[in-house]
Design a protein around this nucleic acid. Structure first.
Lengths: 333, 333
DNA sequence: TTGTAGGCGTTATCAA
DNA sequence: TTGATAACGCCTACAA
């Protein structure tokens, strides 16, 4: 392996001078710089990032931990975060967590100075894990599982947005609206959105039929399709479905089609996330747009603040993003 | 920051003993181990991965560089690679390259010992860049852009698969089959598949109408939809479309619907990739399944061989995966 | 079973 | 403008 010392020897200068050239420091005479550059090229020298990280104590890259990589939502989010980070001169490196254990793992990894900071989208952690988030490294949590934890937090306006989605279905004439979600626990995406759904129904003077609240164990297309078929074939009476994710909603559209039910004529469907695919699905999917870019921007900002802040760790900050209702064919255009 | 020395001091042992405990070395007395463990917990010690990497010269993680993170195909691929790597005890960390320059960047990064090896899915590199791939670090190229480069290479059976897809459309009665692809250059996905398409037409005694060969500059849903509308509204005569990616194909289905054309009745559509979404799309999408898992498995294997191999770099290896034709609604079920 | 010495490749500091 | 020295935190090799 060619090191800085080899280059120094070849160029007839000290290692320090080579380092200065590499890092574009001023105060290097032009002729010296040229000599060094030439030696670097000749020996095909590359910096050793591990060594540099150790010496500098920082890496210039942040970590992004997501539960699942093959998911339209997390993909969209990751793209937004990469763009936001790039604007600030940071690289991002993505890891899949896939479980609560791995989420906690990811936390210690970041602490280990592999990254300057970590954006963690927590899906498996529970409220009870909040204390484990008290790490001495920059961390921002993205998502709805954890509140009151000692870290910065970026979340969606779940309750409001969910009310708006449900209200939209009501305005389009739905009276028996199903709610499709994941396991409902203490505080999480499903439970917050369930509350919004209930509020909207109540405000419209509609009753909440427990049979209409459907839980599945993964928020994917497969589960949406399967459950929709079961609902249709089981004779459940419903004329609208609000799904907590777009993946679920696209699955539902598929399941309804399988069961011979026409959307939006017989049943209207709305999702949540405004994933790239939802615009092109047939029928195109009405949904809630959670302003991915805004959230990403904010998450990276908060993280950068923590990274750059040297002194007295300031109070934990929360940020709740914007949202907008996107009306497409699945609710009647 | 708590270091190994602090722990050693607190536990009344030498730093080396702490290191031995951390790395589960034998030859540490139970009582000593307990003391050290206790001190580690008390001080909330975490290893510094950067330092460990530098000292060991390896990291236990491999890099995966993809052109785009928010893409069903690359997401699916990434998931497969993560699974394959996990089975072999490796972590993977994903980076978005987004351009040819960044692809070349990713190459040097890996060389810099941030990762033990790199799987690079090259979309922007040209054949002319092949020589730049001569790096002294483990690298595996996934994709079709580069041939004859001095690195291991995993690719799809583009020509065969593309013939099979086209043949399928012909068997279903299509006579005017459009081919939708990206820019066709020297050797790449689009050009290889174009050849397969032409062969299938020739074998069936059909002529190739240049007007049916449609190029777009990105292989996404938006481009597919836009072009399909143009083709329909421009009065192009076609009864089948073979798209080089599923994203493109789903976009085409959308575009056809916008133009009031029914698929598969009036026009049949087939894609390539068997992306997760294609099964749920309406109509569900016929496509080529390129055996993502097999390719991932193989790519990780090849990389691991290079990582573990100490001596005489053996010859570069190529691997062409399997494929299967998946028939769904978009070509008539 | 434990400890000592030295080095991994780079950078910061400060002196020349 | 350049260079000597001393870290960064850990691990390998060897000695006690």
């Amino acid at each position: 392996m060619v090191t800085i010392k080899d280059v120094a020897k070849a160029a007839g200068v000290s290692p320090m001078t080579v380092s200065n050239v590499i890092n574009d420091h001023p105060n290097v005479r032009g002729s010296t710089r040229a000599k060094v550059l030439e030696a670097m090229a000749r020996l095909d020298y590359r910096v050793n990032v591990a060594a540099r990280n150790l010496a500098k104590g920082s890496t210039g890259t942040i970590g992004l931990a997501v539960p699942e990589v093959n998911s339209p939502y997390y993909s969209r989010l990751a793209a937004a975060i990469i763009a936001a980070a790039e604007r600030r001169g940071l690289r991002v490196s993505i890891e899949q967590t896939a479980s609560r254990d791995n989420e906690l793992d990811a936390l210690s990894l970041s602490r280990n100075r592999l990254y300057d900071g970590l954006i963690l989208t927590a899906a498996g952690m529970r409220q009870a894990d909040a204390e484990r988030l008290r790490v001495d490294h920059p961390v921002v949590i993205l998502g709805d599982r954890i509140f009151g934890a000692p870290v910065d937090h970026v979340a969606m306006p779940n309750l409001e947005a969910s009310r708006a989605a449900t209200r939209h279905l009501i305005e389009r004439g739905c009276r028996r609206i199903a709610f499709l979600c994941g396991a409902v626990e203490e505080v999480d995406t499903s439970s917050l959105r369930l509350t919004g759904y209930r509020q909207a129904l109540a405000e419209a003077g509609l009753s909440t039929d427990p049979a209409l609240i459907q839980q599945v164990d993964r928020l994917g297309m497969r589960e949406g399709a399967g459950r929709a078929r079961e609902m249709a074939e089981g004779g459940l009476d419903f004329d609208g479905v609000f799904c907590v994710t777009d993946s679920l909603a696209m699955g539902v559209l598929r399941g309804l089609a399988d069961a011979g039910i026409r959307a939006p004529d017989q049943v209207k469907v709305i999702g949540f996330d405004n994933v790239t695919e939802s615009e092109y699905f047939i029928p195109s999917l009405s949904t809630i747009d959670p302003d991915h870019d805004g959230m990403a921007e904010r998450a990276v900002d908060l993280l950068l603040q923590r990274i750059e802040q040297t002194e007295p760790p300031t109070r934990q900050q929360d940020f709740i993003g914007d949202f907008s209702l996107v009306i497409r064919e699945s609710t009647g255009g």
